[in-house]
């Protein structure tokens, strides 16, 4: 059985979207992936499907994004978490090696499972999806 079947990629950088797609095909990972350009788009989608089975198992979340950034997404995510039909794993994926961001991510330790630095590598993918 696969660890993750449905994945949300939330990042405003379309180059990153392209890289992720390439990594999936290279590692032969067959998952259902949805791409969002900011936190608001992603949380809107989650809210729509909150009580259905049609929600992701994993969210790869960027921090620095327009409209709703990663933190704002997590604030909203906190509020709807209880209503979800299954547990969603959230990984923060950011180019920021800023200590303030790393410390802030600890405030969301109930929501965020791990912090990955960009660029994500093939090894990262293998650990996540193995």
């Amino acid at each position: 059985m696969k660890k993750f079947n449905t994945i949300f990629v939330v990042d405003d950088d379309m180059v990153y979207h392209f890289i992720i797609k390439k990594l999936f095909s290279k590692c032969n990972i067959d998952v259902d992936t949805k791409y969002f350009f900011n936190g608001l788009e992603a949380i809107d989608e989650l809210r729509d499907k909150v009580e259905t089975d049609n929600i992701p198992d994993l969210i790869l979340l960027d921090i620095n994004m327009p409209v709703y950034d990663g933190w704002q997404f997590l604030e909203e995510f906190k509020k709807i978490k209880q209503k979800l039909t299954k547990e969603i794993t959230v990984y923060l994926v950011s180019s920021s090696n800023d200590v303030t961001d790393l410390n802030k991510s600890k405030e969301y330790q109930d929501e965020v499972k791990k912090y990955y630095y960009k660029p994500m590598t093939q090894e990262d993918f293998e650990t996540i999806f193995a």
């Binding site: 950088d13 990153y16 620095n64 180019s95 920021s96 090696n97 800023d98 303030t100 960009k118 660029p119």
Partner: peptide, 22 residues
């Protein structure tokens, strides 16, 4: 400034690295 560098420059260099790999 350091924050801007960390967020905005690193993401580009990361992309370069990955794109060149691909």
């Amino acid at each position: 400034f350091a924050h801007i560098v960390s967020h905005n420059l690193r993401s580009h260099t990361g992309n370069f690295k990955m794109l060149l790999n691909i």
